[in-house]
Write a protein that binds this DNA or RNA. Structure first.
Lengths: 113, 113
DNA sequence: AGCGTTCTCCCATAAAGCTAGAAATATCGA
DNA sequence: TCGATATTTCTAGCTTTATGGGAGAACGCT
């Protein structure tokens, strides 16, 4: 996963309402959850909810399957795993340190090259 | 970690520039990286950079230590670990499924309670 | 105290996001 | 086809964010 993709995913989840939506879908399990059910749970306007769901769908964190007039939403575990993988690999452990680490230890001290 | 806190952290990282800043700090290792060094790497206006760093500091993902006129920035591993922990526990694995899962499997089908 | 260095804060502007009401669309059953 | 249900799209207003120029503040050196 590229940095820009990771940022896009983080941004999508970086809103309390959208994070609640995503968590609700995780908790719903493999059965997923209809948009209407989400609307009942979160108590927000349908148009607002639709907007947020779309943001999650666009980045791939959520998928939708139509069942007659209702749309069932599913969390995409794979995308989340990739995102967490990026964070752990690039942004979490100290093992992410590159050769930069040693160089910077020196360059921090001086002003200009 | 509460959902709102997690969302705030995700939002802070959900910007390519800020994610680059954070990653650079991780790569810098324990020595950290001065604001000026970041500015050279990312090539953005000092005021813009300062804004982004502040956003990361506010949520605790980054800490700063002054060394004379320069400010050294450090990534806060602990906060990141908490964030990843939240994602894994609440939003990643299917083990996050609650009793909701079984209930929803039924309620998805019908319209009103 | 004066000076250079480093960085932040104030300000303004342009762009994007959030919210939601109302209209439009998709789908199925009668 | 008509109607009911479920959801999206359009539209609009308000708020927030991103960016950066320039003034100002923190700091150490002489």
């Amino acid at each position: 996963m590229k940095l820009d993709d990771a940022a896009a995913h983080l941004e999508a989840l970086g809103n309390p309402t959208r994070l609640k939506i995503y968590r609700a879908l995780i908790r719903a399990g493999g059965a997923g959850l209809a948009v209407g059910r989400l609307q009942e749970k979160l108590k927000i306007a349908p148009s607002t909810l639709s907007h947020h769901i779309k943001a999650l769908v666009v980045v791939g964190l959520v998928t939708q399957v139509r069942d007659a007039t209702t749309l069932i939403c599913h969390a995409n575990y794979e995308v989340m795993r990739e995102l967490v993988g990026f964070l752990v690999a690039e942004c979490c452990t100290e093992s992410a340190e590159t050769a930069d680490a040693k160089i910077n230890a020196k360059t921090n001290a001086k002003t200009a090259a």
